[in-house]
Every structure is written in structure tokens, then in C-alpha cells.
Design a protein around this nucleic acid. Sequence first.
DNA 1: ATGAAAGCGCTAACAC
DNA 2: GTGTTAGCGCTTTCAT
Lengths: 347, 347
Amino acid sequence: MTTQDIEPTRAPASAGQSPTLEMVAARAGVSRATVSRVVNSSPKVTAEVVALVQNAIAELNYVPNRAARSLASRKTQVIALVVPESAAKVFDDPFFASVVQGVALYLADTDYTLNLLIASETKSDKTRRYLLGGNVDGALVVSHHSGDHSYTRLGQQLPIVFGGRPINPETAEGHYVDVDNVAGARVATQRLIERGCRSIATIAGPQDMPPGIDRLAGWREALASAGIDDSLIEYGDYSPDDGAEAMRRLLARGVPIDGLFTYSDQLAAGAYSVIREAGLTIPGDIAVVGYDDDRYASTIDPPLTTVNQAPTAMGAKMAEIVVRLIDGEEIDTATTMPTKLVVRDSA
Amino acid sequence: MTTQDIEPTRAPASAGQSPTLEMVAARAGVSRATVSRVVNSSPKVTAEVVALVQNAIAELNYVPNRAARSLASRKTQVIALVVPESAAKVFDDPFFASVVQGVALYLADTDYTLNLLIASETKSDKTRRYLLGGNVDGALVVSHHSGDHSYTRLGQQLPIVFGGRPINPETAEGHYVDVDNVAGARVATQRLIERGCRSIATIAGPQDMPPGIDRLAGWREALASAGIDDSLIEYGDYSPDDGAEAMRRLLARGVPIDGLFTYSDQLAAGAYSVIREAGLTIPGDIAVVGYDDDRYASTIDPPLTTVNQAPTAMGAKMAEIVVRLIDGEEIDTATTMPTKLVVRDSA
DNA sequence: ATGAAAGCGCTAACAC
DNA sequence: GTGTTAGCGCTTTCAT
């Protein structure tokens, strides 16, 4: 009676060490190679053998060791999601949080594992090394400053996709998926025009990054094709306070305004309070359309008409693209996601 | 002239394959074992040799291969962050998003890598297997439903820490770090009392999970020690809309209310609008204190007095604890993080 | 303090 | 279709 015989037929999800492929092979009475084939669903294995092996796997509760697999196959099955710390606020930003969610959700259905990396600027080359050190099969980079794309160069050595169009597409390496900011802003502004607004202002965003530039451009396009003046521009950064100040400056110009498009919902929220302070109503006196469709857009009073960017879809798309890139597919450098106008009460 | 001789003295951050430990050894003129020791900062290596090796490493731009290292050392250096999909909205929730951020930030300074896992309920045992299959050294679980702690049993087999107290601490396995919801709610309510409120209502949260239970308890404690009646309770779930409805019910009771504590800022936002509709002022007629200190708390009008939970600190703490657990330290099962009252204009 | 050698658990030719 | 046999790049006794 050998040790083998003593082993219970149904090994309990048991004890100490994880079962190895070799143990599965022994139990199924086949070679390790065959087990490996079954695990990797190779087509050339008899159905009977497959069943045999799968039983053994189930009985032993076998799980392949990733490190060993990766070492032997020279594939890591991991995809890094790099979040530059400057944009560490990513998680403060519902948009990015959702992108991350989309990525994770997509990858959950694949054999890839998601590696979340916060790349502080001070050790950005620790990150760089990590990425190029053969520790990941591909990378995703999300950042506010799609402008600074400091990881841009990695594109040549590793499948990588950026969230957001680089400031300078011709110059950048790698793929990116972007939201169609121009179209989003155009449609938003058109909504104002269709409503009858004829003096339409905008609180634009930072002009040193693509979204800011594109949304302003979309606003201009819409006004241009309606023959409306486009000089009512003030800039805001991020917070509602910025929006409030910009709105004050707009009102201070003394020219009547009946429509407002803002770079973000947050900016719109700030503008709301100033409009009210001025004794004006929304949308009665000034109709407003925001951008982002963030959590509070439907909450503020009146509920804000805004542009939805489907961030989880964007995240999923980014993930899908790296995976295909890893598989060697050729893919367009740019992928643009559509936006959708969400009409509520403010315009 | 061998291939060796052809190799340039300063290998450019170059080409195809990543340099291996063996290449470093060759260049430094030592054995692989020594290089390994240097890489792992073993104490017993001569300073000179260390320098030699480090030069070689720098010149070759060597990065250890994680898979190989992990296979040989039987450690993965990976920590999983499990986000049950039910709570997939985690990322919609700024609180959780920040916890994730805290975890990532903490781990960025260690040699651990963060594995983000979305565990859908349908394949929760795919996740379970993955975790127990020796693919990670430890796990972090964040969830709204800390009640269902379905990963609770893993605690025996893997270092694991939960975000949020389990519904039933005695029953649960594993460590957890929780925010002191009782104290947070108590202090918030005391603020109302100190302000002179004597008829204090609450819009409580779901009573099937710890935070909901604890915050309601904290409210009760405060009222009890001030001898104030504690029957003005209505429940809300998550959204501002829930808050609005709850507020309506509260007002419909016909009893005057001069103070309100809500389970969340979102609920408070909803209550705001109803209070206004009723022609009441904040904080004049009704002072309100929220909970979470989320992004909009300072934005709404009037800026909301609320309770800040320092979620990134909580995330960092969770990460710190798994790491110490992995290192074999003994740690208290429960860790409680403090909260802070943020006074603004609403109370 | 350093080197030699034996694996870690798996995949991938290559043979049969 | 299945088994044999080398490694993948690193850590880790065990000598020296």
C-alpha cells in the first residue's frame, strides 16, 4: 500500500500546498503535457482524455500556477493600468473612476489580470522599467494631462493604449481612444440654439489639454453654422467655484445672455448659483447645458441637461484594444467613442 | 572573437530581450547567486561587490523577472483588491474610489503589485480559486455589503483584510478596518444639539449593513445623552431622490423639525430641495449635517456640514495590514479609523 | 562572503 | 493524439 493508495478519492479542497499539474497528470494517468494541453484547451486531445483530466482537475481543485505558466510561456497575462499620480485625483473624478471600472469589467471576462499602477512623477522611471521589464503584456494609460503623455514612447516597445487623445497626435506613439468632444459640445450647443437661444456663452475648460480645446471648438462650430457670435467665452478650471467666477465675469460684461454651455457639470453647478444670485432663472432666462453627466447632474435644481460620455464603454474599449494589439492585430491608432446628449430641465 | 566580445560596453536600454540576471552576473564578473543577493539586498555581500553588481544592473538596465522570482521564491508579491460586482458601483461611490486610491498609493511604495479584481457573483468561485490558487500573497476586499462577506472564509487560508466591519464580527474570519461610524454620527448630531436644535430628525441608511446601523446608533446616542426624542426617523437608500422622498415623509409628519442628520451627503442633497420647496431655510429653519464629505458637499448651497472619513487613509491602512499579515505579524482583528466633522454652513 | 547546483510549475518543440 | 525532454529566470541550500 503506497502513499498513493492512502490518498482519499475526493481530495478535500484541502490542506497545505496547491496541487500541481504533475499531480493532476498522475491522477489522470496521463503525461503533464497532456494536462497542459487540456488546461489550455488545445484542440488535439481526445474527448475521453479531456474528461479524464478535467475530473482529476476538479477532484484536486487544481489551479494553474500563474508564475510558472508565465515563465514558461513568456507571456504574463497581465495588463497594467497606469494612473499618473498628477492625475491621482483620477479617483476623485467620476469619469476616470468609471473608465477604470470599464477596464476591470472587460478584463474580468478574459484571462488577463489587471495591474493598477500609480505612477508618481518622481519615480516615473521605476514605472517605466517595470512596464518594459517584461512584467506586463500591455498597458493602459489614463490621465488628465493626455497632453504630457510621458509614457508615449513606450508605445514602440509594448502594446499600449491611452485614454484621451494626445495633444499632438502626429508626434505621439501608440494607440488611443478618445471621446468625441467636438461632436459632444456641438450637439449640446445646438440644443441651446434649437431652444431659441441667440446669445450663447460658454465657460470653457483648460486649453492646454484636448478635451478643453475640443469642447470649445464644438461650441464654436455650432454657433458658426447658426451665424451666432462666439465671443462670450470665459474659462474655468475644474471646481464649481471656478464656474461661479467665470459666470460672474460673463454677467459683468453687461451683454444679455440667454444660453450657456459649460465645459463640465461642475462648472455648471457653480454657474447655477451665480445665475440665481443675479435674480435670473434657469432655463427661463438662461438655459444651460453641462458636460459629463456626472452623478449630481440629475440632482441639482433644475436637473442639468448635459453630455454623457459613457466612460465605462471607453474603458472597455481601451481594454479590448490592448488585448487585440497583444494578439498581434492591426488596429487604427485612433478610436473615437460617441457621446449622447441627456436632456433634462436646464435646457 | 566571440559573441561576447561583440557586445557593446554600454548596452543601450536596447533591443529585444530583457537582460537576465545571468547577463548581469557575467558583466559584473560574479555568480548569479551574488547578483540575486544584491538584488534582494542581502546583508552579506561586500560593499565593493555590491557596487560592481549595481553598476552592471544600471548599465544593462536590468529588471528582475517577476514570474521567475515568484516561481522560485514561492511568493507572488501580488495583493488582490477584490471588488464584488454587486458593489460594482464602487467606482460610482467616491468613498470606495478613494479607498482604492489609498491602497494603490500605499502599495506603490512597496514591492507589491496591486491586482484589481471585479468578482461577479456568478463566478465568485472563479475568483475564490484564483485567490487560493497561490496567485496572490494576500487580498483586500471592499464592498458595500460587508454584510455578505462571501469571501469571509478565505481568511483562514490567505491573509485578507476587509474594508468595513462585517455584520457579524464574531462569526467572520479575517481582519477588517472600519470607520468609526458610531462616533462620526454622534459627533455630527452633537453639532446639531450644540447649535440649539431640539427636534432632530434623521434620514437613515440601509439597516442591513453596518454603516447604516452604526450611524443610526450614533445619532441615537447623541440624542439620548441630551434627552431628546429619537422618533424622527425615515430611511433612504442611496440616491438624492431617496433623500428627497424621505424628507417629504419627515415633513408630512407635521411635527416641527429644526435639525437633520443624514446617512449620506447624497441623501442630504435630496433633502435640501424638499426643504426649500417647503419654504424653509437652511440652516435657519433646519440645520443639516450630512456624511461622507463627498465632492459636492462644499458645492451645494449652503455648503454642507458633514463627516469626513478619510477614505484614502483607510485604504492605506488596509494595505498596510495585509502586508504585515503576510510578513507574519499578529494584528488585531479590528482596526477603527477616526472620522472628522467638517463644519460648513448648513449647521 | 561567494559559487555550484538543484529545482520552482509550467509550456513547447520534437519524437513517436 | 500523447509522451519526452528541455528549459523559462530566478532563489536557495550547501559547500567552500
